[in-house]
Amino acid sequence: QTVQFNGLEYHFPNPEEAEKFAKKVAKELGGEVRVKDGRWQID
Score class of each variant (00 low, 15 high):
residue 1 Q to V: 11
residue 1 Q to W: 15
residue 1 Q to E: 08
residue 1 Q to K: 10
residue 1 Q to R: 11
residue 1 Q to H: 15
residue 1 Q to S: 14
residue 1 Q to Y: 15
residue 1 Q to F: 15
residue 2 T to G: 02
residue 2 T to M: 08
residue 2 T to D: 03
residue 2 T to S: 09
residue 2 T to C: 13
residue 2 T to L: 10
residue 2 T to R: 06
residue 2 T to V: 15
residue 2 T to P: 01
residue 2 T to Q: 05
residue 3 V to K: 00
residue 3 V to D: 01
residue 3 V to W: 01
residue 3 V to T: 00
residue 3 V to I: 04
residue 3 V to H: 01
residue 3 V to G: 01
residue 3 V to Y: 02
residue 3 V to A: 02
residue 3 V to F: 06
residue 3 V to M: 03
residue 4 Q to R: 11
residue 4 Q to E: 14
residue 4 Q to V: 15
residue 4 Q to I: 15
residue 4 Q to N: 10
residue 5 F to P: 00
residue 5 F to Q: 01
residue 5 F to Y: 11
residue 5 F to R: 00
residue 5 F to T: 03
residue 5 F to C: 07
residue 5 F to E: 01
residue 5 F to N: 01
residue 5 F to M: 06
residue 5 F to H: 08
residue 5 F to K: 01
residue 6 N to A: 09
residue 6 N to L: 12
residue 6 N to V: 04
residue 6 N to E: 07
residue 6 N to S: 07
residue 6 N to C: 15
residue 6 N to Y: 07
residue 6 N to T: 02
residue 6 N to W: 08
residue 6 N to I: 04
residue 6 N to G: 09
residue 7 G to N: 07
residue 7 G to L: 04
residue 7 G to P: 00
residue 7 G to K: 04
residue 7 G to H: 05
residue 7 G to W: 04
residue 7 G to D: 06
residue 7 G to R: 04
residue 7 G to C: 14
residue 7 G to T: 04
residue 8 L to G: 06
residue 8 L to Q: 13
residue 8 L to R: 14
residue 8 L to A: 10
residue 8 L to M: 13
residue 8 L to Y: 13
residue 8 L to H: 13
residue 8 L to I: 13
residue 8 L to C: 15
residue 9 E to N: 08
residue 9 E to T: 14
residue 9 E to D: 09
residue 9 E to G: 03
residue 9 E to C: 15
residue 9 E to F: 13
residue 9 E to Y: 11
residue 10 Y to V: 06
residue 10 Y to E: 02
residue 10 Y to C: 13
residue 10 Y to G: 00
residue 10 Y to F: 13
residue 10 Y to Q: 02
residue 10 Y to W: 12
residue 10 Y to A: 03
residue 10 Y to I: 09
residue 10 Y to L: 08
residue 10 Y to N: 00
residue 10 Y to D: 00
residue 10 Y to H: 05
residue 11 H to Q: 07
residue 11 H to K: 08
residue 11 H to L: 08
residue 11 H to I: 08
residue 11 H to T: 09
residue 11 H to G: 03
residue 11 H to C: 14
residue 11 H to Y: 13
residue 12 F to S: 00
residue 12 F to T: 00
residue 12 F to H: 00
residue 12 F to M: 02
residue 13 P to V: 09
residue 13 P to N: 13
residue 13 P to K: 11
residue 13 P to I: 09
residue 13 P to R: 10
residue 13 P to C: 13
residue 13 P to W: 08
residue 13 P to G: 09
residue 14 N to M: 04
residue 14 N to G: 07
residue 14 N to E: 05
residue 14 N to A: 05
residue 14 N to Q: 04
residue 14 N to K: 03
residue 14 N to T: 14
residue 14 N to I: 04
residue 14 N to W: 04
residue 14 N to D: 09
residue 14 N to F: 05
residue 14 N to P: 00
residue 14 N to Y: 05
residue 15 P to M: 11
residue 15 P to H: 09
residue 15 P to L: 07
residue 15 P to W: 12
residue 15 P to I: 10
residue 15 P to F: 11
residue 15 P to V: 11
residue 15 P to E: 10
residue 16 E to W: 12
residue 16 E to K: 08
residue 16 E to C: 11
residue 16 E to F: 11
residue 17 E to T: 08
residue 17 E to R: 04
residue 17 E to Y: 04
residue 17 E to G: 04
residue 17 E to I: 06
residue 17 E to M: 10
residue 17 E to C: 14
residue 17 E to P: 00
residue 17 E to K: 05
residue 17 E to A: 11
residue 17 E to L: 10
residue 17 E to F: 05
residue 17 E to H: 04
residue 18 A to F: 02
residue 18 A to N: 00
residue 18 A to R: 01
residue 18 A to G: 01
residue 18 A to H: 00
residue 18 A to D: 00
residue 18 A to W: 02
residue 18 A to S: 01
residue 19 E to P: 00
residue 19 E to W: 09
residue 19 E to M: 08
residue 19 E to C: 11
residue 19 E to Y: 11
residue 19 E to N: 04
residue 19 E to F: 08
residue 19 E to V: 05
residue 19 E to R: 06
residue 20 K to N: 10
residue 20 K to H: 08
residue 20 K to C: 14
residue 20 K to Y: 10
residue 20 K to A: 14
residue 20 K to D: 10
residue 20 K to S: 10
residue 21 F to H: 02
residue 21 F to E: 02
residue 21 F to W: 13
residue 21 F to Q: 01
residue 21 F to D: 01
residue 21 F to G: 01
residue 21 F to T: 01
residue 21 F to A: 02
residue 21 F to K: 00
residue 21 F to N: 01
residue 21 F to L: 01
residue 21 F to S: 00
residue 22 A to S: 03
residue 22 A to C: 14
residue 22 A to W: 04
residue 22 A to M: 04
residue 22 A to D: 01
residue 22 A to Q: 02
residue 22 A to P: 00
residue 23 K to W: 12
residue 23 K to R: 14
residue 23 K to N: 12
residue 23 K to E: 09
residue 23 K to T: 10
residue 23 K to I: 12
residue 23 K to M: 12
residue 23 K to Q: 11
residue 23 K to A: 08
residue 23 K to C: 06
residue 23 K to D: 07
residue 23 K to Y: 14
residue 24 K to D: 09
residue 24 K to R: 12
residue 24 K to N: 08
residue 24 K to A: 12
residue 24 K to P: 01
residue 24 K to T: 09
residue 24 K to V: 07
residue 25 V to S: 03
residue 25 V to C: 10
residue 25 V to H: 05
residue 25 V to P: 02
residue 25 V to L: 14
residue 25 V to I: 14
residue 25 V to T: 06
residue 25 V to K: 09
residue 25 V to W: 12
residue 25 V to D: 01
residue 25 V to G: 01
residue 25 V to R: 04
residue 26 A to H: 05
residue 26 A to F: 05
residue 26 A to E: 04
residue 26 A to W: 05
residue 26 A to P: 00
residue 26 A to Q: 06
residue 26 A to I: 07
residue 26 A to K: 03
residue 26 A to C: 13
residue 26 A to M: 05
residue 26 A to G: 05
residue 26 A to N: 03
residue 27 K to M: 13
residue 27 K to T: 10
residue 27 K to S: 11
residue 27 K to D: 10
residue 27 K to P: 02
residue 27 K to E: 12
residue 27 K to I: 10
residue 27 K to V: 09
residue 27 K to H: 12
residue 27 K to Y: 12
residue 27 K to Q: 11
residue 27 K to R: 09
residue 27 K to L: 13
residue 28 E to A: 10
residue 28 E to D: 09
residue 28 E to F: 09
residue 28 E to P: 02
residue 28 E to C: 15
residue 28 E to G: 04
residue 28 E to Q: 09
residue 28 E to T: 07
residue 28 E to Y: 10
residue 29 L to G: 05
residue 29 L to V: 14
residue 29 L to K: 05
residue 29 L to A: 06
residue 29 L to C: 15
residue 29 L to Y: 13
residue 29 L to P: 02
residue 29 L to S: 12
residue 29 L to F: 14
residue 29 L to I: 13
residue 30 G to Q: 06
residue 30 G to N: 09
residue 30 G to W: 04
residue 30 G to M: 06
residue 30 G to Y: 05
residue 30 G to K: 07
residue 31 G to M: 14
residue 31 G to T: 10
residue 31 G to A: 13
residue 31 G to W: 12
residue 31 G to C: 15
residue 31 G to R: 07
residue 31 G to P: 00
residue 31 G to E: 06
residue 31 G to S: 08
residue 31 G to V: 15
residue 31 G to D: 04
residue 32 E to D: 08
residue 32 E to S: 13
residue 32 E to H: 12
residue 32 E to W: 10
residue 32 E to R: 11
residue 32 E to G: 06
residue 32 E to N: 10
residue 33 V to C: 14
residue 33 V to Y: 08
residue 33 V to D: 02
residue 33 V to M: 06
residue 33 V to L: 11
residue 33 V to H: 04
residue 33 V to R: 00
residue 33 V to A: 15
residue 33 V to E: 03
residue 33 V to N: 03
residue 34 R to D: 06
residue 34 R to H: 14
residue 34 R to L: 11
residue 34 R to P: 03
residue 34 R to E: 07
residue 34 R to K: 13
residue 35 V to R: 06
residue 35 V to F: 15
residue 35 V to C: 14
residue 35 V to A: 06
residue 35 V to P: 04
residue 35 V to G: 04
residue 35 V to L: 15
residue 35 V to E: 10
residue 35 V to K: 07
residue 35 V to D: 05
residue 35 V to N: 09
residue 36 K to Y: 08
residue 36 K to I: 14
residue 36 K to W: 06
residue 36 K to R: 09
residue 36 K to N: 10
residue 36 K to Q: 13
residue 36 K to M: 10
residue 36 K to F: 08
residue 36 K to T: 12
residue 36 K to P: 04
residue 36 K to V: 15
residue 36 K to D: 08
residue 36 K to H: 12
residue 37 D to V: 00
residue 37 D to H: 05
residue 37 D to C: 10
residue 37 D to T: 01
residue 37 D to E: 06
residue 37 D to I: 00
residue 37 D to Y: 01
residue 37 D to N: 10
residue 37 D to R: 02
residue 37 D to S: 03
residue 37 D to W: 01
residue 37 D to G: 06
residue 37 D to K: 03
residue 38 G to C: 09
residue 38 G to D: 06
residue 38 G to Y: 01
residue 38 G to R: 02
residue 38 G to N: 08
residue 38 G to F: 02
residue 38 G to S: 04
residue 38 G to A: 03
residue 38 G to P: 02
residue 38 G to H: 04
residue 39 R to L: 14
residue 39 R to P: 03
residue 39 R to D: 05
residue 39 R to W: 07
residue 39 R to H: 12
residue 39 R to G: 07
residue 39 R to S: 08
residue 40 W to V: 04
residue 40 W to H: 03
residue 40 W to K: 00
residue 40 W to S: 01
residue 40 W to Q: 02
residue 40 W to F: 07
residue 40 W to T: 03
residue 40 W to G: 02
residue 40 W to N: 02
residue 40 W to Y: 07
residue 40 W to E: 03
residue 40 W to R: 00
residue 40 W to A: 01
residue 40 W to D: 03
residue 41 Q to I: 15
residue 41 Q to K: 06
residue 41 Q to G: 05
residue 41 Q to D: 07
residue 41 Q to P: 03
residue 41 Q to N: 07
residue 41 Q to H: 14
residue 42 I to E: 03
residue 42 I to M: 02
residue 42 I to C: 08
residue 42 I to D: 02
residue 42 I to A: 03
residue 42 I to V: 11
residue 42 I to T: 03
residue 42 I to S: 02
residue 42 I to Y: 04
residue 43 D to R: 08
residue 43 D to C: 15
residue 43 D to V: 15
residue 43 D to G: 08
residue 43 D to Y: 15
residue 43 D to E: 13
residue 43 D to H: 14
residue 43 D to A: 12
residue 43 D to F: 15
residue 43 D to T: 15
residue 43 D to M: 14
residue 43 D to S: 13
